[in-house]
């Protein structure tokens, strides 16, 4: 692994994040597993050669690039893609690398770069490992989303900001919704009572009727939403401020 990281000194120019990634993979892997991988080096190399041929076929042999590097970049690119970085990024990287390697590359450097297949394999394995990791990434993102929404809800429900803990916050929210639903029930009961008493619905208010009721100064409400609704001032007859209508005997 140390060799691999040492052999990568020219890759770090291509992609600055390489060293950190290699180190993190080294950290992430168990030592026995690593041995296992390095024993299987040659097989690996053949694999990567096959893949290199495919790569060059795909490119139409336009460039005389060092395909080991290319391969490595490709592996990285795939890993990047798994993390959600766009594919175009990878393409541009590969092109830059082509430009860099379009000069004569000696066999020595090619031999030196014989290490990368291992790297590549590690990357593949890391990618396999990262399948679970991406799950946990997605899980983390989901959890973040949930906590963010919980925060929004906390802002929405009055008196919920001081409560700590998901269950308690949910309890508060449930209580608030229940109280609102009960309020709707109560108010519709009251509407029914008002209706049966007066028979109001035949004469619904016109705008001029609303004008003088709109003038009445509002009493401050305790809840956030009420304050917000009291503050907007469109000339609708519904927007007038009311206070304590529930307590008043009808």
């Amino acid at each position: 692994m140390n060799d691999g990281a040492g052999g990568a000194y020219n890759f770090s120019e291509i992609w600055p994040g390489f060293h950190a990634n290699a180190a993190s993979y080294a950290l992430a892997m168990n030592p026995p597993e690593m041995d296992h991988i390095s024993n299987r080096g040659p097989v690996n190399y053949n694999n990567s050669k096959k893949r290199r041929d495919e790569d060059e076929c795909a490119k139409g042999g336009a460039s005389t690039s060092n395909s080991d590097n290319d391969n490595l970049i490709e592996g990285d690119g795939k890993r990047l893609k798994a993390e959600g970085i766009s594919n175009g990024d990878r393409e541009s990287k590969a092109q830059r690398e082509d430009v860099r390697n379009s000069g004569k590359v000696t066999d020595k450097s090619a031999a030196k770069a014989a290490e990368p297949p291992k790297q590549d394999y590690i990357h593949v394995r890391a990618r396999r490992g990262q399948a679970t990791d991406s799950h946990s990434l997605a899980e983390r993102a989901r959890r973040e989303k949930i906590s963010e929404r919980m925060k929004i809800l906390q802002d929405l429900v009055p008196g919920c900001n001081k409560v700590i803990g998901k269950a308690l916050v949910l309890d508060e929210i449930i209580n608030y919704i229940q109280s609102l639903q009960r309020q709707v029930e109560f108010l519709s009961m009251k509407l029914e009572a008002v209706n049966s008493r007066e028979g109001i619905y035949g004469s619904y208010p016109s705008k001029d009727f609303s004008q003088h009721t709109f003038e009445t100064p509002g009493m401050p409400f305790d809840s956030q939403g009420a304050r917000e609704y009291g503050r907007d001032s469109s000339p609708e007859w519904l927007h007038m401020q009311i206070g304590g209508s529930l307590e008043r005997p009808s």
């Binding site: 989901r142 989303k145 949930i146 929404r149 919980m150 929004i152 809800l153 929405l156 429900v157 929210i173 608030y176 919704i177 609102l180 639903q181 309020q183 709707v184 108010l187 519709s188 009251k190 509407l191 008002v194 007066e198 109001i200 208010p205 009721t213 809840s223 939403g225 009420a226 609704y229 007859w237 519904l238 007038m240 009311i242 209508s245 529930l246 008043r248 009808s250």
Partner: peptide, 30 residues
């Protein structure tokens, strides 16, 4: 659960608006 929280927020807002409107109507006639 994510969606539920989202919908809950919107539902609360609308319930509040509903309560306000009903209060206003009752207040007008009482």
């Amino acid at each position: 659960f994510c969606r539920l929280l989202n919908e809950t927020g919107h539902y609360i807002k609308c319930l509040r608006a509903q309560v306000k409107v009903m209060k206003n109507i009752i207040d007008l006639y009482s």
